[in-house]
Design a protein around this nucleic acid. Structure first.
Lengths: 305, 305
DNA sequence: CCTCGAATGCGTACGGTGTATCGATCAGGC
DNA sequence: GCCTGATCGATACACCGTACGCATTCGAGG
């Protein structure tokens, strides 16, 4: 939760809202010039940067189009081609996201703070907010960009099962390379980013030939996705904890047992205690188990109709 | 990551380490008195509380045994039974955890900060650290306590499938009641807390009759667990985002589409666009779909041997 | 009785976080 | 040379987890 609570909106939002209302009401019509940034700043008694932020908000919403040197006008209808500054921001984003991904890969997602990232890039922390609105958006875009490294072939192997396995394993491998990915994705709203959507689209394409109702197709695609993420986030939690405590899983378990004062050895949880040492260590094996069972079940569904 | 980085250990750990070294080296032998708390405090130039903390650490490790009124001596071998103060801490923990759970239920896991929780209880923030060592431990214990509200019958319905469905749905319902649970659990090391272990134990009990190798049994139990958590964490992310942005999923999607400048409507992702509106909204249905497919697949595995 | 270990509570402080705002400067159309 | 919008570095705020200091109390040996 941000420092600004539920009710108190920051000034730049108030200003943007006022202008937006004037546009909506028809007082300002398409083509009209909206108050300049300095006019806004003076009118509201705020700094230029604040007025700039309000203007940027309106621009992002597609309500206005800035003409450098000639003021800002109310845009005609929808957004035209993204203006030059938009393209520039897009280019900057790439380097910012790459740096953020590098940090997350090396030291985990928690190490990616705005200050740290800015320092890495040699810029001020606040400069990042010209490229992303939020930290949340930063993380979401990181996840999407990482997903770009998970390309699926135009024509995969023959058979739907091999194709689905391919897609699931590709995503799994991606999560293995970027351990922060599952956390970043589960923070995002489901299927936000374009590359992630492309992945889902590919799977939907595989499912299209099977004669299932569209609702079922979507369920299957999302279920596969969840399957990968669940295993991957276990793996991430595991290696993360291992790094933090310095103990591998086995040793940690026994340490916890004695500390918690639990008599785990047979008396309370005999079956759990009987599990062979290190049976859960190989998360990849666990993932393959879950995938196999799920696809077996799905095959039964497909064959059944 | 805590403020104390990798290298700089807090003083109380340094003190404890020093004493520990003297015990390990044989300079202090079992039965010998270790320096009193006040002696330690004076010797290191720290407050009594810090020396107490160091002594508490050694006590927890079972290296020393305090004799009230007669100093602290190096313990003979292992730890004796947990003393009365341990019980008192246990009782206090319950009220602390209940308060924390209440906050998390009402306002989400992020609203549970040490300060906030302490304020709720009318105590100082630091008093919490007498009951839990960490925020991490707090969250883990919260999850475990919540899991206590997920009791499974001694003798469930007939048939392994009905029993597994019962267990999975019980966990699902629990996550539905406590939306923060999936996040809290995935932060914890897998199967840490006793109640969670009891759940796993119950499932292992169901699987015991099927004649599968132990490794497979564990895989199945963990797979079921993951299945529930994956769906539940999607649900949590969804309702959380809905609260924050105030938009339900459908509206948010269209807003994002226009903002991101994506032409989603058919040109780039035709299959995704063709999915009926609101098909992914019912997470419960998605969960049931995943559960059914998985159990079908597992049934095939059971029948196959 | 006196002293010691333990528990408790409250206050302060440090270093971190995300991000709103300020003030000044840079680049380009009229 | 005006004005425009774009950009940057620095400051500030509120909050976080938690280490540490200090004062007090309790209950059990010596």
């Amino acid at each position: 939760m941000a420092s600004t609570g539920r009710g108190a909106r920051p000034p730049y939002r108030v200003i943007a809202g006022e202008v937006r209302a004037r546009i909506r009401s028809g007082e300002l019509r398409p083509g009209d010039r909206v108050p300049s940034i300095r006019q806004l700043a003076q009118r509201w008694g705020v700094a230029i940067a604040t007025a700039t932020r309000a203007a940027a908000l309106l621009r992002e919403e597609g309500l206005v189009e800035p003409k450098v040197g000639a003021g800002t006008v109310v845009s005609a209808r929808a957004v035209a081609a993204p203006a030059a500054p938009e393209r520039r921001a897009h280019a900057r984003r790439a380097t910012v996201l790459d740096a953020a991904i590098a940090i997350a890969d090396a030291e985990g997602l928690d190490a990616v703070s705005m200050r740290r990232l800015a320092a890495q890039l040699g810029i001020g922390p606040m400069s990042l907010y010209r490229v992303v609105a939020d930290k949340e958006e930063l993380v979401a875009r990181m996840a999407d960009r990482a997903f770009a490294g998970c390309p699926l072939p135009a024509t995969g192997p023959p058979g739907w099962r091999a194709k689905l396995e391919l897609a699931a394993r590709a995503e799994w491998e991606l999560c293995r390379a970027h351990l922060w990915l599952p956390r970043a994705i589960s923070l995002t709203r489901p299927s936000f980013a374009p590359h992630l959507m492309a992945h889902t689209e590919w799977i939907l394409g595989v499912l299209a030939e099977l004669g299932l109702p569209p609702r079922t197709r979507l369920h299957e695609a999302l279920a596969l996705h969840s399957l990968v993420l669940a295993s991957a986030s276990s793996m991430a939690a595991e290696t993360d904890a291992e790094q933090r405590t310095g103990l591998p899983l086995g040793r940690w378990r026994s340490a916890q047992r004695s500390r918690a004062g639990l008599a785990v050895d047979g008396t309370r949880f005999p079956l759990l205690a009987a599990v062979p040492e290190g049976a859960a260590d190989d998360l990849a094996e666990l993932f393959e188990y879950g995938l196999a069972r799920h696809l077996d079940g799905f095959a039964a569904l497909v064959a059944g109709r």
